[in-house]
Each structure stands twice: as C-alpha cells, then as structure tokens.
Design a protein around this nucleic acid. Structure first.
Lengths: 338, 338
DNA sequence: CTGAAAGCGCTTACAG
DNA sequence: CTGAAAGCGCTTACAG
C-alpha cells in the first residue's frame, strides 16, 4: 500500500507538501499540486484515516454501544434508535461505529475507541464504564437514565409511567371503567413503570387496578405479540366484558382487533383499543387506524446524537432530556357505549 | 489523557513492558504486572485503539457502506441487512463502522478507513470505488452484483426475476389466469426484474402479461404501501375480476386484504394473495397468514459478512453467491374457484 | 523476563 | 509557497 512517503518521493516534494495537497490546510503551488496528484494516481495512494486520526486526534466517528439480544433480533425500538442516531450523525458528517459486542466492564479490557464520542444504550446500575469515559475525557451520552442519578452525565430517556398515566386519563375521560391491560413481559422495567402509571390514573378517580385486569406477555406462552393480543381478548372476554383494551404495542393491538372481529365487536363502537408503543409502524394502516403512543425511539436516538455533537464542541455541557412520547389520536377509541 | 509513557514512568518499567502487560503477547513477571496495573488504575490509563491499529495494522472493525435515503427512513430490507451483518460480525469479534454518508467517488476524497474490510451496498454502474479498494488491498464484498460483471469481485445478491417467475408458476399451477400484479415503484430495477420474471412464467403457458394487469407503486399517488394495495384492488376490481393478486410487499398485501374484506371477497376462497417480499415481518400475523417470499435480507447481510471474514483470512478467495429467496407457503393462496 | 529504539503513516509548528 | 523534524500512542524485532 502506497504511503505519503512514496508519493512525496515520486513527486519530488516533502511529505508535508503531499499532506497539505490532500488536506488543503495550507495552500500549495499549482505545479507541486499537479505533480502530487499525478504521483498519487500512479501509485494508487489514498490517505490513511488511522494515521491521520492519531496525528490530529479526531476521527469524525461516533460510537454507539448497544448489545444485541442473543437471538440476534433487534426490536423495532432499537432499530429506530439506530436510525435516529445515524441520521443525526450524518447531518454533521459523522459516521457511526456500532459496537454490539457483549459488554466488558473489566477496566483492563477497556480501550479508547477510534471515536470522538459515544452514545451508550441502557446503562447498567453502577455502570463502571461511565466513570472510565469520564477519565479519558470522552464525550458520553446515555440513552436511558444513569442509576444512580448523576448530575454530571448527559442522557435522554422517556417517561413510561407518565405516559401510561396519560393514556389512562384519556380512557377515563371517555367513561371507560373496565379496562383490560395487556402489558409487556413482567421482567421488563418498562412493564412495571407502565402498570404504575395506569394505576395512578385510575387512583385519581378513586379506582383500583385489580390484578385480573392486567396480563403480561410471555415468550413461552405466546407465539407472537399478535397472538398474545388475540388470545388474551378471546379468553378474558368470556368471563368479563371490558369496554377498553390498553395494548402493550401495535402488534398486540393487531391481535386484539382480530379477536374483536371474531367476537362481532366493533372497534371503536363496542370496544376502544389503544397501544402504548409502536413496534412496527403499522398503527395508521390498521382497520381502524390505531390510537397509540409514539415512543419516538428515533427521536431519542437523534437527540442523543445531537447532544453528543454539542458535547464534542464543549466538554462542559450536560443535558438531561426526558423525551415526552406523544399520544397520537386516531380512530380506535370512542366514548363508552351505554 | 494518560498514555503508555506515563504508565511506564510511574510503574518504573519500559513502555514495551506496559504494552505487553495489556496485550499479553509475551509474559511479564508478576511484580512488574502488578505495578503496571496499579499505575494504570491511578492514572486512569486505557490503551488507545487508534495507536494500536496503526502499529499492528488491524482494527477488528468491518466497514458497511450504505447510503441512507434522504428522508432518513431505512427500509426493512436495509434494516435486516444491517442486522445480518452485525450478528455475523459480532460472532467473529468484529464491530461495524456504518458509513451512511453520501458517496464520493472522487478519488481525491477517498480515504483508507479504520477497517479491516468493507461491505458495500448497491454498487453503482462502473463503480470506481471497487477499483480503489482493490488498489489498497482492502477486502471487499458487495451486496448486489457489480456492473459490469467482474470475476474478481465477491458479492451476494438475490435473483428477483427467478423469484417472481416461481411465484407466477405457483399461481398458474392453481389455475389462476387473471392475475393482478401490484409491482414496486417503476424506477426500481427490482420492479423491472420482477415484472420480467412474472411475464416469463406466464409465457411458459403461452400467456401474455398485459400492461393493464400491472400497476406500480408511486410515492406521489399513494400515502403508504398499504393504501396502495387497498386502492388498487378496490379500483381495478370494478372493471375486471381477478382471482389472484401478486403484491410487492406484505404491507401492500395488508391493504389488499382489507379491500377484499370490504368487497365481501374471502381470501383465499375467492381471491388468492401472495407477496414478493416482506417489509414488516407481519406476514404470519395477518388474517389469513400470508403466503410470501422471504427475501432474507438478513441472510444476505450475514453471508456478505461471512465472505468478508474469509477474505480477510485469505485475500485470494472470491465468492459470488446468489442467495435464493424462498417462498413460504401459508394460507392466502388456494386453487382457483370455478 | 525486560529495555532501547525503530517503525506504523500522518500532521504541524518552526524556519526559510 | 516549501522542507526538515518532532510528535501522535502504540508494537515488536533485537539484544541482553
């Protein structure tokens, strides 16, 4: 592989000159420029990004640390997150180093990556890496709040409890009182937060959220989220009749809609359906179009990237954003029938 | 930021020793090892990946060049491709540098990236970059075939014409003769290939594929692929009655199913529906479950990555794989009603 | 087991 | 406008 030295020699100039021809950092005479380009062409020379990075201590690369589930399937959330990060970074001329390797927080394994800053997904409790990044002065933004909280670290996150509460209030305002909640898998913190939020909304009206109104997704029991929604409704509607269903995701809601159809229930006339997040961007294409919460994973990613860009300019900035997901009203909810 | 020199000084050893303590490339005495780790801890020293890469000429990073549509929305195809690449790379301990920046093929802009090899999506005609990578000896694998063909470059691709032909044969074997083809946007080469393939299947039975049986998606005319499928069926079924619909994607098929429902047509009894690719992994969750082609973008990505790993071992290997997408039979197609 | 020194391929004051 | 040289932070024969 041709190096800057080879080019300098062939063109009869110094390597400094070659360097500046390519980087345009200082003006080089037209004669020399021509000879350099010609020599480079002949030799098949292209500047080496690594050597350059080492010299100028800048890579124009952002790191994204995000372990991938062992089954290799990224959720729609992760995908949209990546998308947001990618787009925002591209705007600023940055590329992205995707690090999906299992995490080591053995300090003796840690290395200073070829990036100018990093975005880290789902930090663990007492995550040692946060401190390591601080030590080496690497700009860092978390997606998901640090635990314990730390006023010095930047992050973006959304407020799942608040969100579920809002959804609850919305349904209550329509007069729904018997609400079936098809929650996420019980081992996810988000499931906990959402149940808490929905319960809070009910509590505001002096109503409880009895356990039998809450179901949880389970990988073992359900073939897919859609299947989960379908079965859950079919089974519970036998013994009780709800007027509203809060589904974990739009895919779960897809199953709910199917079950409703089979039971001869019209949505939204007989049954209101609402989803707490969108897995598959299909909400607006369902029949009827689904009222749901836009989790804006994409926004989360974009904001994280934007904050990172700021931090790279000025190491002192600290941003802690709670991204408010928004409720998108479509046609699957209606006033309670009487 | 602490460097290897600082550590060496504080620990009272040479930098070579420090280097070897971290890399374990040669054994270092327990005394020295302890002093080095202690000094490193005190100083907050972590090895610099860039400097290391420069010295050993290896990064353990694979490059993925893949321009993103200006609207920032990656298709499911691209997403799954990335997923495949990521997983396969992770298996081999590689990380991935995602380069979504607009492409420059100005040779004077080209740079040797901090990667050990690259996967390049959708090469252009006469793509200059292929030659540049060859010149610097960078292992390269394309996703999508090079044009013009080049026996020296490795790639993976799938055979869209063949696929569409197979789908055509399948429907014909069920006795369907009036087939509506809801094709992709006409400016995509894949749309061209698919139409050719379907026409070939019909030609085998001495039948034509008249233009009025083929429609094309259009960003301007249709709000979404689902909307496209919905409207197309509603409108064409007025004047003609088809017994089968070939949809571009599962999302288009979703609209077709809805339209059929509204028209009182039972799928598959009255109308067979089949999709040529899956955008949204929802085929199996539709009612009825959709027969469709699994494009295996994920496999495409995984295979590209695997070939890249091979090439990094041995620069001489050349692999040219046509990944055969597979038809997945579910319940949306049936023998033609008579 | 350890050290001194050259080298990886570039950039950038400094001097002219 | 251009060159010579030190420096970015690591690795690795070579010598002991």
């Amino acid at each position: 592989m041709a190096t800057i030295d080879d080019v300098a020699k062939l063109a009869g100039v110094s390597k400094g000159t070659v360097s500046n021809v390519f980087s345009k950092k200082r003006p080089i005479g037209p004669e020399a420029t021509k000879r350099v380009f010609e020599a480079a062409r002949q030799l098949g020379y292209y500047p080496n990004h690594i050597a350059r990075s080492l010299a100028i201590r800048k890579t124009m690369i952002a790191g994204l640390r995000m372990p991938i589930p062992k089954d290799g399937m990224m959720s729609q959330f992760e995908i949209q997150m990546i998308n947001g990060v990618l787009n925002e970074c591209a705007k600023h001329g940055f590329r992205v180093l995707l690090d999906t390797l299992p995490e080591h927080d053995d300090p003796n394994q840690f290395t200073v990556d070829p990036v100018d800053g990093v975005i880290m997904l789902n930090p663990r409790r007492e995550d040692l890496r946060i401190e390591m990044y601080r030590q080496i002065g690497m700009p860092l933004v978390l997606v998901g709040r640090p635990d314990p909280m730390d006023p010095g670290v930047s992050y973006v996150d959304n407020d799942n409890a608040e969100l579920a509460c809002e959804v609850g209030r919305y349904l209550l305002s329509f007069g729904h009182e018997s609400i079936l909640f098809l929650n996420a898998s019980s081992d996810m913190t988000v499931a906990f937060d959402r149940e808490r939020g929905l319960a809070a909304a009910l509590a505001e009206q002096g109503m409880p959220l009895p356990p039998e109104q809450v179901m949880n997704y389970s990988r073992e029991l359900h073939r897919s989220p859609t299947e989960y929604g379908y079965r859950a409704v079919l089974e519970t509607m036998k013994s009780r009749s709800y007027t509203a269903v809060v589904a974990d995701t739009d895919r779960v809601a897809l199953g709910v809609l199917r079950a409703a159809r089979e039971l001869g229930l019209n949505v939204p006339d007989d049954l209101s359906v609402i989803a707490l997040s969108n897995d598959a961007r299909l909400a607006q294409e369902m029949t009827p179009p689904l009222t749901c919460v836009e989790l804006s994973a994409e926004m989360l990613g974009a904001q994280a990237a934007q904050i990172l860009m700021e931090k790279m300019e000025n190491a002192n900035v600290v941003r802690q954003h709670t991204v408010r997901a928004k409720l998108v009203f479509r046609e699957s909810c209606k006033k309670r029938p009487r």
